[in-house]
Nucleic acid binder design. Structure first.
Lengths: 187, 187
DNA sequence: GTCTATATTAAGATAGAC
DNA sequence: GTCTATCTTAATATAGAC
Protein backbone atom coordinates (compact mmCIF):
# COMPACT_ATOMS: atom_id res chain seq x y z
CA UNK A 1 0.00 0.00 0.00
CA UNK A 2 2.16 2.79 -1.31
CA UNK A 3 1.30 5.81 0.77
CA UNK A 4 0.65 8.93 -1.21
CA UNK A 5 2.23 12.29 -0.65
CA UNK A 6 -1.11 14.04 -0.45
CA UNK A 7 -3.29 13.15 2.50
CA UNK A 8 -7.03 12.74 2.20
CA UNK A 9 -7.43 15.77 4.45
CA UNK A 10 -5.17 17.89 2.24
CA UNK A 11 -7.24 16.98 -0.79
CA UNK A 12 -10.45 17.85 1.00
CA UNK A 13 -9.15 21.14 2.34
CA UNK A 14 -7.96 22.15 -1.11
CA UNK A 15 -11.32 21.20 -2.55
CA UNK A 16 -13.15 23.07 0.20
CA UNK A 17 -11.26 26.25 -0.68
CA UNK A 18 -12.30 25.86 -4.31
CA UNK A 19 -15.95 25.12 -3.52
CA UNK A 20 -16.17 28.06 -1.16
CA UNK A 21 -14.75 30.50 -3.69
CA UNK A 22 -16.36 29.23 -6.90
CA UNK A 23 -19.44 27.30 -5.78
CA UNK A 24 -20.31 23.72 -6.69
CA UNK A 25 -20.94 24.31 -10.39
CA UNK A 26 -17.91 26.57 -10.68
CA UNK A 27 -15.47 23.84 -9.66
CA UNK A 28 -14.35 21.12 -12.09
CA UNK A 29 -12.48 17.94 -11.30
CA UNK A 30 -9.64 19.33 -13.39
CA UNK A 31 -9.47 22.28 -11.03
CA UNK A 32 -9.41 19.99 -8.02
CA UNK A 33 -6.75 17.92 -9.75
CA UNK A 34 -4.59 21.00 -10.33
CA UNK A 35 -5.12 22.30 -6.83
CA UNK A 36 -4.27 19.02 -5.12
CA UNK A 37 -1.66 17.60 -7.48
CA UNK A 38 -3.61 14.38 -7.94
CA UNK A 39 -4.71 13.34 -11.43
CA UNK A 40 -8.41 12.83 -12.01
CA UNK A 41 -8.38 9.00 -11.95
CA UNK A 42 -6.63 9.16 -8.57
CA UNK A 43 -9.39 11.40 -7.30
CA UNK A 44 -11.96 8.88 -8.52
CA UNK A 45 -10.01 6.08 -6.83
CA UNK A 46 -10.23 7.89 -3.50
CA UNK A 47 -13.71 9.33 -4.03
CA UNK A 48 -15.68 6.96 -6.28
CA UNK A 49 -18.69 9.27 -6.02
CA UNK A 50 -16.81 11.95 -7.96
CA UNK A 51 -17.36 15.65 -7.47
CA UNK A 52 -20.45 15.23 -5.31
CA UNK A 53 -18.63 12.99 -2.84
CA UNK A 54 -15.64 15.33 -2.71
CA UNK A 55 -17.93 18.29 -2.08
CA UNK A 56 -19.77 16.42 0.68
CA UNK A 57 -16.57 15.34 2.42
CA UNK A 58 -15.05 18.80 1.95
CA UNK A 59 -18.14 20.18 3.62
CA UNK A 60 -17.41 17.68 6.38
CA UNK A 61 -14.04 19.36 6.88
CA UNK A 62 -15.78 22.68 7.38
CA UNK A 63 -18.12 21.06 9.89
CA UNK A 64 -15.10 19.62 11.71
CA UNK A 65 -13.47 23.04 11.86
CA UNK A 66 -16.61 24.58 13.27
CA UNK A 67 -17.06 21.77 15.77
CA UNK A 68 -13.55 22.23 17.08
CA UNK A 69 -12.96 25.95 16.82
CA UNK A 70 -16.41 27.46 17.23
CA UNK A 71 -18.99 25.07 18.71
CA UNK A 72 -16.38 23.52 21.01
CA UNK A 73 -15.36 26.68 22.81
CA UNK A 74 -18.99 27.82 23.07
CA UNK A 75 -20.05 24.56 24.75
CA UNK A 76 -17.16 24.54 27.21
CA UNK A 77 -16.99 25.97 30.69
CA UNK A 78 -16.12 29.59 31.40
CA UNK A 79 -17.82 32.94 31.18
CA UNK A 80 -19.89 33.61 28.06
CA UNK A 81 -17.95 36.72 27.02
CA UNK A 82 -14.68 34.80 26.87
CA UNK A 83 -16.22 31.85 25.05
CA UNK A 84 -17.77 34.13 22.44
CA UNK A 85 -14.40 35.85 22.04
CA UNK A 86 -12.80 32.49 21.24
CA UNK A 87 -15.55 31.59 18.78
CA UNK A 88 -15.12 34.93 17.04
CA UNK A 89 -11.41 34.28 16.58
CA UNK A 90 -12.30 30.93 15.02
CA UNK A 91 -14.73 32.66 12.67
CA UNK A 92 -12.18 35.31 11.71
CA UNK A 93 -9.74 32.56 10.75
CA UNK A 94 -12.29 30.44 8.89
CA UNK A 95 -13.43 33.42 6.80
CA UNK A 96 -9.93 34.72 6.12
CA UNK A 97 -10.82 37.99 7.81
CA UNK A 98 -13.72 38.45 5.39
CA UNK A 99 -12.01 37.37 2.18
CA UNK A 100 -13.30 33.78 1.85
CA UNK A 101 -16.99 32.98 1.32
CA UNK A 102 -18.95 30.65 3.56
CA UNK A 103 -19.79 27.12 2.40
CA UNK A 104 -23.29 27.81 3.66
CA UNK A 105 -23.57 30.32 0.85
CA UNK A 106 -21.41 28.78 -1.90
CA UNK A 107 -22.90 25.32 -1.66
CA UNK A 108 -26.49 26.39 -1.03
CA UNK A 109 -27.33 26.88 -4.68
CA UNK A 110 -29.25 23.94 -6.15
CA UNK A 111 -27.32 20.91 -7.36
CA UNK A 112 -28.55 17.53 -8.49
CA UNK A 113 -27.38 16.09 -5.15
CA UNK A 114 -29.93 16.53 -2.36
CA UNK A 115 -27.39 15.31 0.20
CA UNK A 116 -25.46 18.55 -0.14
CA UNK A 117 -28.52 20.59 0.76
CA UNK A 118 -29.38 18.24 3.63
CA UNK A 119 -25.88 18.39 5.09
CA UNK A 120 -25.90 22.19 4.90
CA UNK A 121 -29.27 22.25 6.60
CA UNK A 122 -28.02 20.15 9.52
CA UNK A 123 -24.85 22.21 9.76
CA UNK A 124 -26.76 25.47 9.95
CA UNK A 125 -29.12 24.06 12.58
CA UNK A 126 -26.14 22.99 14.70
CA UNK A 127 -24.67 26.48 14.34
CA UNK A 128 -27.91 28.12 15.43
CA UNK A 129 -28.08 25.71 18.35
CA UNK A 130 -24.53 26.57 19.46
CA UNK A 131 -25.10 30.33 19.26
CA UNK A 132 -28.50 29.99 20.90
CA UNK A 133 -27.00 28.03 23.78
CA UNK A 134 -24.47 30.72 24.62
CA UNK A 135 -27.19 33.37 24.45
CA UNK A 136 -29.34 31.38 26.86
CA UNK A 137 -26.46 31.37 29.34
CA UNK A 138 -27.11 35.07 29.89
CA UNK A 139 -30.57 34.23 31.18
CA UNK A 140 -32.30 35.06 27.94
CA UNK A 141 -35.56 33.31 27.04
CA UNK A 142 -35.20 30.40 24.64
CA UNK A 143 -37.09 32.08 21.82
CA UNK A 144 -35.16 35.32 22.19
CA UNK A 145 -31.87 33.39 22.24
CA UNK A 146 -32.82 31.56 19.06
CA UNK A 147 -33.61 34.84 17.29
CA UNK A 148 -30.31 36.35 18.47
CA UNK A 149 -28.43 33.29 17.21
CA UNK A 150 -30.09 33.51 13.82
CA UNK A 151 -29.43 37.24 13.64
CA UNK A 152 -25.73 36.74 14.34
CA UNK A 153 -25.43 34.14 11.59
CA UNK A 154 -27.51 36.23 9.20
CA UNK A 155 -25.19 39.18 9.81
CA UNK A 156 -22.08 37.06 9.25
CA UNK A 157 -23.34 35.55 6.01
CA UNK A 158 -24.62 38.87 4.73
CA UNK A 159 -21.45 40.73 5.61
CA UNK A 160 -19.38 38.20 3.69
CA UNK A 161 -21.43 38.93 0.58
CA UNK A 162 -21.16 42.69 1.02
CA UNK A 163 -17.42 42.46 1.69
CA UNK A 164 -16.97 40.28 -1.37
CA UNK A 165 -18.94 42.53 -3.71
CA UNK A 166 -17.40 45.76 -2.40
CA UNK A 167 -13.97 44.10 -2.21
CA UNK A 168 -13.65 45.57 1.25
CA UNK A 169 -13.22 43.46 4.40
CA UNK A 170 -14.56 46.17 6.70
CA UNK A 171 -18.24 45.19 6.66
CA UNK A 172 -17.23 41.70 7.79
CA UNK A 173 -14.87 43.00 10.46
CA UNK A 174 -17.47 45.40 11.80
CA UNK A 175 -20.01 42.59 11.93
CA UNK A 176 -17.63 40.35 13.86
CA UNK A 177 -17.15 43.11 16.43
CA UNK A 178 -20.89 43.37 16.94
CA UNK A 179 -21.42 39.65 17.55
CA UNK A 180 -20.91 39.74 21.35
CA UNK A 181 -23.62 42.39 21.69
CA UNK A 182 -25.99 40.50 19.41
CA UNK A 183 -25.57 37.24 21.31
CA UNK A 184 -25.14 38.41 24.89
CA UNK A 185 -26.33 41.94 25.52
CA UNK A 186 -29.93 42.39 26.58
CA UNK A 187 -31.54 45.36 24.86
CA UNK B 1 -38.59 42.49 -39.65
CA UNK B 2 -40.69 39.65 -38.34
CA UNK B 3 -41.42 40.51 -34.73
CA UNK B 4 -40.84 37.67 -32.33
CA UNK B 5 -43.28 36.39 -29.78
CA UNK B 6 -40.80 36.70 -26.96
CA UNK B 7 -39.72 40.21 -26.04
CA UNK B 8 -36.15 41.03 -25.10
CA UNK B 9 -37.39 41.85 -21.61
CA UNK B 10 -39.12 38.49 -21.25
CA UNK B 11 -35.92 36.72 -22.22
CA UNK B 12 -33.92 38.74 -19.72
CA UNK B 13 -36.41 38.25 -16.90
CA UNK B 14 -36.43 34.52 -17.50
CA UNK B 15 -32.65 34.47 -17.54
CA UNK B 16 -32.51 36.58 -14.39
CA UNK B 17 -34.64 34.02 -12.57
CA UNK B 18 -32.28 31.26 -13.63
CA UNK B 19 -29.13 33.17 -12.69
CA UNK B 20 -30.53 34.10 -9.30
CA UNK B 21 -31.48 30.53 -8.45
CA UNK B 22 -28.54 28.63 -9.95
CA UNK B 23 -25.71 31.17 -10.16
CA UNK B 24 -23.71 32.06 -13.26
CA UNK B 25 -21.91 28.73 -13.64
CA UNK B 26 -25.07 26.79 -12.87
CA UNK B 27 -26.95 28.19 -15.87
CA UNK B 28 -26.39 26.89 -19.40
CA UNK B 29 -27.54 28.42 -22.66
CA UNK B 30 -29.66 25.31 -23.14
CA UNK B 31 -31.42 26.12 -19.88
CA UNK B 32 -32.02 29.70 -20.99
CA UNK B 33 -33.23 28.36 -24.32
CA UNK B 34 -35.71 26.05 -22.61
CA UNK B 35 -36.87 28.72 -20.19
CA UNK B 36 -37.46 31.35 -22.85
CA UNK B 37 -38.57 29.20 -25.78
CA UNK B 38 -35.86 30.62 -28.03
CA UNK B 39 -33.29 28.26 -29.59
CA UNK B 40 -29.64 28.89 -28.85
CA UNK B 41 -28.79 30.51 -32.21
CA UNK B 42 -31.65 32.97 -31.67
CA UNK B 43 -30.20 33.85 -28.30
CA UNK B 44 -26.82 34.47 -29.95
CA UNK B 45 -28.50 36.61 -32.60
CA UNK B 46 -29.99 38.84 -29.91
CA UNK B 47 -27.03 38.64 -27.54
CA UNK B 48 -23.84 38.12 -29.58
CA UNK B 49 -21.81 38.15 -26.36
CA UNK B 50 -23.45 34.89 -25.29
CA UNK B 51 -24.04 33.94 -21.68
CA UNK B 52 -21.97 36.78 -20.25
CA UNK B 53 -23.97 39.40 -22.13
CA UNK B 54 -27.26 37.81 -21.15
CA UNK B 55 -26.18 37.73 -17.51
CA UNK B 56 -25.10 41.37 -17.63
CA UNK B 57 -28.34 42.53 -19.23
CA UNK B 58 -30.39 40.33 -16.89
CA UNK B 59 -28.58 42.01 -14.03
CA UNK B 60 -29.63 45.27 -15.66
CA UNK B 61 -33.26 44.18 -15.29
CA UNK B 62 -32.70 43.69 -11.57
CA UNK B 63 -31.14 47.14 -11.37
CA UNK B 64 -34.16 48.56 -13.20
CA UNK B 65 -36.53 46.89 -10.75
CA UNK B 66 -34.63 48.30 -7.80
CA UNK B 67 -34.46 51.76 -9.36
CA UNK B 68 -38.20 51.82 -9.87
CA UNK B 69 -39.54 49.92 -6.89
CA UNK B 70 -36.98 50.55 -4.15
CA UNK B 71 -34.64 53.45 -4.86
CA UNK B 72 -37.42 55.45 -6.48
CA UNK B 73 -39.81 55.50 -3.52
CA UNK B 74 -36.93 56.17 -1.11
CA UNK B 75 -35.79 59.22 -3.07
CA UNK B 76 -39.28 60.70 -3.42
CA UNK B 77 -41.06 63.14 -1.18
CA UNK B 78 -42.99 62.05 1.89
CA UNK B 79 -42.25 60.91 5.39
CA UNK B 80 -39.39 58.40 5.80
CA UNK B 81 -41.54 55.73 7.48
CA UNK B 82 -43.93 55.57 4.56
CA UNK B 83 -41.14 55.57 1.99
CA UNK B 84 -39.36 52.72 3.78
CA UNK B 85 -42.65 50.84 3.92
CA UNK B 86 -42.96 51.11 0.13
CA UNK B 87 -39.36 50.00 -0.37
CA UNK B 88 -39.94 46.99 1.87
CA UNK B 89 -42.93 45.95 -0.22
CA UNK B 90 -40.71 46.16 -3.29
CA UNK B 91 -38.10 43.99 -1.60
CA UNK B 92 -40.68 41.43 -0.52
CA UNK B 93 -41.83 41.10 -4.11
CA UNK B 94 -38.32 40.96 -5.59
CA UNK B 95 -37.28 38.21 -3.20
CA UNK B 96 -40.48 36.21 -3.57
CA UNK B 97 -41.12 36.56 0.16
CA UNK B 98 -37.74 34.98 0.89
CA UNK B 99 -37.83 32.18 -1.66
CA UNK B 100 -35.66 33.69 -4.43
CA UNK B 101 -31.94 34.45 -3.91
CA UNK B 102 -30.44 37.87 -4.55
CA UNK B 103 -28.38 38.50 -7.70
CA UNK B 104 -25.89 40.20 -5.42
CA UNK B 105 -25.22 36.77 -3.96
CA UNK B 106 -25.76 34.45 -6.95
CA UNK B 107 -23.64 36.46 -9.38
CA UNK B 108 -20.93 37.47 -6.92
CA UNK B 109 -18.95 34.26 -7.28
CA UNK B 110 -15.96 34.69 -9.60
CA UNK B 111 -16.49 34.37 -13.34
CA UNK B 112 -14.12 35.07 -16.19
CA UNK B 113 -16.03 38.28 -16.88
CA UNK B 114 -14.91 41.19 -14.70
CA UNK B 115 -17.83 43.31 -15.94
CA UNK B 116 -20.22 41.19 -13.91
CA UNK B 117 -18.34 41.92 -10.70
CA UNK B 118 -18.05 45.61 -11.57
CA UNK B 119 -21.76 45.95 -12.29
CA UNK B 120 -22.62 44.23 -9.01
CA UNK B 121 -20.25 46.55 -7.18
CA UNK B 122 -21.93 49.65 -8.61
CA UNK B 123 -25.37 48.22 -7.90
CA UNK B 124 -24.54 47.55 -4.27
CA UNK B 125 -23.06 51.02 -3.84
CA UNK B 126 -26.22 52.56 -5.24
CA UNK B 127 -28.28 50.46 -2.83
CA UNK B 128 -26.21 51.56 0.14
CA UNK B 129 -26.53 55.17 -1.03
CA UNK B 130 -30.32 54.88 -1.25
CA UNK B 131 -30.69 53.31 2.21
CA UNK B 132 -28.16 55.74 3.65
CA UNK B 133 -30.08 58.69 2.23
CA UNK B 134 -33.32 57.72 3.93
CA UNK B 135 -31.49 57.16 7.21
CA UNK B 136 -29.97 60.63 6.98
CA UNK B 137 -33.45 62.09 6.65
CA UNK B 138 -33.99 61.24 10.31
CA UNK B 139 -31.16 63.58 11.26
CA UNK B 140 -28.61 60.82 11.64
CA UNK B 141 -24.93 61.56 11.04
CA UNK B 142 -23.63 60.54 7.62
CA UNK B 143 -21.33 57.85 8.96
CA UNK B 144 -24.02 56.37 11.19
CA UNK B 145 -26.49 56.39 8.29
CA UNK B 146 -24.00 54.58 6.07
CA UNK B 147 -23.47 51.88 8.70
CA UNK B 148 -27.23 51.46 9.18
CA UNK B 149 -27.68 51.14 5.41
CA UNK B 150 -24.99 48.48 5.19
CA UNK B 151 -26.46 46.64 8.16
CA UNK B 152 -29.89 46.54 6.57
CA UNK B 153 -28.50 45.11 3.34
CA UNK B 154 -26.28 42.67 5.22
CA UNK B 155 -29.31 41.43 7.13
CA UNK B 156 -31.35 41.01 3.95
CA UNK B 157 -28.65 39.10 2.10
CA UNK B 158 -27.85 36.95 5.10
CA UNK B 159 -31.48 36.17 5.84
CA UNK B 160 -31.99 35.00 2.26
CA UNK B 161 -29.18 32.48 2.72
CA UNK B 162 -30.54 31.27 6.06
CA UNK B 163 -34.07 31.01 4.68
CA UNK B 164 -32.79 29.11 1.66
CA UNK B 165 -30.73 26.61 3.66
CA UNK B 166 -33.41 26.07 6.31
CA UNK B 167 -36.11 26.06 3.63
CA UNK B 168 -38.06 28.41 5.85
CA UNK B 169 -39.09 31.93 4.80
CA UNK B 170 -39.43 33.17 8.38
CA UNK B 171 -35.87 34.46 8.87
CA UNK B 172 -36.31 36.62 5.78
CA UNK B 173 -39.75 37.86 6.85
CA UNK B 174 -38.50 38.69 10.33
CA UNK B 175 -35.57 40.59 8.85
CA UNK B 176 -37.86 42.60 6.58
CA UNK B 177 -39.93 43.62 9.59
CA UNK B 178 -36.84 44.91 11.38
CA UNK B 179 -35.66 47.09 8.49
CA UNK B 180 -37.54 50.26 9.54
CA UNK B 181 -35.91 50.15 12.96
CA UNK B 182 -32.48 49.53 11.50
CA UNK B 183 -32.74 52.42 9.06
CA UNK B 184 -34.75 54.98 11.00
CA UNK B 185 -34.79 54.41 14.75
CA UNK B 186 -32.07 56.09 16.79
CA UNK B 187 -30.71 53.81 19.47
C1' DG C 1 -2.61 4.02 -5.58
C1' DT C 2 -1.35 6.67 -9.37
C1' DC C 3 -0.88 7.32 -13.85
C1' DT C 4 -1.73 7.84 -19.51
C1' DA C 5 -5.12 7.39 -22.65
C1' DT C 6 -9.75 7.52 -23.90
C1' DA C 7 -14.87 7.22 -23.91
C1' DT C 8 -19.03 9.99 -23.48
C1' DT C 9 -21.78 13.71 -22.79
C1' DA C 10 -22.85 18.55 -22.60
C1' DA C 11 -21.14 22.95 -22.78
C1' DG C 12 -20.42 27.46 -25.60
C1' DA C 13 -20.59 28.94 -30.16
C1' DT C 14 -21.28 29.34 -35.48
C1' DA C 15 -22.80 28.22 -40.54
C1' DG C 16 -26.20 28.57 -43.43
C1' DA C 17 -31.18 27.53 -44.88
C1' DC C 18 -35.58 29.72 -44.58
C1' DG D 1 -35.07 36.71 -36.76
C1' DT D 2 -35.41 31.95 -36.04
C1' DC D 3 -34.37 27.61 -37.00
C1' DT D 4 -31.62 22.69 -37.93
C1' DA D 5 -27.32 20.98 -38.08
C1' DT D 6 -22.74 21.09 -36.72
C1' DC D 7 -18.18 22.51 -34.81
C1' DT D 8 -15.01 22.74 -30.82
C1' DT D 9 -13.90 22.41 -26.35
C1' DA D 10 -14.24 20.93 -21.72
C1' DA D 11 -16.81 18.45 -18.56
C1' DT D 12 -17.57 13.82 -15.90
C1' DA D 13 -16.08 9.38 -15.83
C1' DT D 14 -13.63 4.81 -16.86
C1' DA D 15 -10.11 1.19 -18.83
C1' DG D 16 -6.07 -0.65 -18.09
C1' DA D 17 -0.83 -0.26 -17.56
C1' DC D 18 2.49 0.13 -13.90
Amino acid sequence: MARSKVSRQEVLRGALELFRVFGFEGVSLSAISQKTGLEKPSLYFRFPGGKAQIALEALGEAVKFFSGQIFGPLCGVGNPEEKVRLAIEGLRIFYGDGTIPCVTDSLSFPTEYPEVAMTLNRFLQAWIEAFSGIAEETGMARQEAQARAENAIIALEGSLIVSRVLQDPRPFRRTLLEIPDVLLKSK
